[in-house]
Amino acid sequence: MTVGDQVKQAVASLKSAQASFESFALQTNNQNAKQMYQNAAQQTQTIVQQIEQRVQEMIDEEPEYGNQ
């Protein structure tokens, strides 16, 4: 597995974590916990965006990463 693939996998994991946070936020009735899960989902989203940008850069630099 190339580094590119590993980075993509990390992005996928993060996205799944973000989705879990969102669903936990919906499930709980505790206002504190809800707020906390929403924050966590938002911050995870920011991280995902940063790393996705990097993935795009890698694809631009070395196109073979993109078509695997």
Binding site: L14, A40, Q43, I47, Q50, I51, R54
Partner: peptide
């Protein structure tokens, strides 16, 4: 990833994001 890459910008970005993620982990 931060250790592996030679691109200084990317290194910094990975490092920052790892710190951000650590904050999230501590919070939850």
């Amino acid at each position: 990833f931060a250790l592996q890459t030679n691109d200084q910008n990317a290194k910094q970005m990975y490092y920052n994001q790892s710190k951000e993620l650590d904050k999230v982990i501590q919070m939850v």
